[in-house]
């Protein structure tokens, strides 16, 4: 038996970093244990991309022109699909309740959770893009910029999407509702992402466009976790 310590309400604050690392490690570990599921959004991504040559036209000229848009839309849909899992398991298992009751700021916890979600869903999409880019006959320069925009853009998708995932937590038909709430908010990211690649193809300077995407990322990281944290409290309160 352990000895119980003397009990007086404690005043000192508790360390934040170990708690955040604990969240990160738990999430990555849980994702690693169900790693076969992690391939699903990736396979979905490839399949959606394959639909375009089949459904619209396999002509090299068409694919080269719309390749960036196709890849961006597919990445967006794939992210949307994976978002449903972001908080759902934690919510069902009661882990989310415990997270809300940690004395450490919920904002940071959410930040870490979304980051770990991006590591296992967004990053693989970026890594997969060069292969698909070649299949869509994009030239090397465009593929490079496309990967860059996706690298900056997919975390924005994850952070904005987390708000929707938190708002629809525990609701019936959450999946379709989540898409409904989030797709309008994704439009600027999509526009700047594909626009950058279009500008590259047209030979325009793109530094400022990438800076705009970067600005979106900064805004998403600083603001979205606040809204997500508020939404999580509401959803847990309602459960």
């Amino acid at each position: 038996m352990l000895k119980l310590p003397r009990l007086t309400p404690r005043q000192e604050s508790q360390p934040v970093l170990p708690a955040l690392l604990g969240v990160l490690r738990r999430d990555l570990l849980a994702n690693f244990r169900r790693r076969q599921e992690l391939f699903n959004p990736l396979i979905f991504f490839v399949m959606v991309v394959a639909l375009f040559p089949l459904g619209v036209s396999p002509e090299v000229e068409f694919l080269r022109q719309s390749g960036a848009g196709i890849l961006w839309v597919a990445a967006l849909l794939s992210t949307l699909l994976s978002l449903d899992h972001l908080f759902r398991h934690d919510f069902d298992e009661g882990v989310l309740e415990q997270m809300l009751l940690q004395p450490q700021p919920l904002y940071l916890m959410v930040l870490v959770k979304v980051f770990s979600h991006w590591l296992v869903t967004g990053l693989p999409l970026v890594l997969m893009t060069p292969v698909l880019g070649v299949m869509l006959h994009l030239d090397g320069n465009s593929i490079g910029y496309l990967c860059l925009t996706l690298l900056v853009g997919t975390p924005v998708l994850s952070f904005i999407g987390a708000i929707g995932a938190a708002l629809t937590l525990g609701l019936r038909s959450a999946g379709i509702l989540l898409s409904l709430l989030i797709i309008p908010l994704y439009i600027p990211v999509l526009i700047f992402g594909t626009g950058t690649v279009t500008a590259v193809a047209a030979g325009l300077p793109v530094g400022s466009y990438i800076a705009l995407l970067g600005a979106l990322l900064v805004v998403a990281i600083t603001c979205a976790p606040f809204a997500t944290a508020a939404a999580l409290r509401i959803s847990v309160s309602n459960s």
């Binding site: 360390p15 969240v23 490690r25 298992e93 009661g94």
Partner: peptide, 24 residues
């Protein structure tokens, strides 16, 4: 709570470690 806050994919040790990671 009602739902114990345990992740089924993790071991008891990993679960407890994650839950108490914020405690020095």
């Amino acid at each position: 709570g009602h739902r114990p806050g345990i992740k089924p994919l993790l071991t008891p040790l990993e679960n407890l470690r994650a839950q108490l990671s914020g405690k020095p």
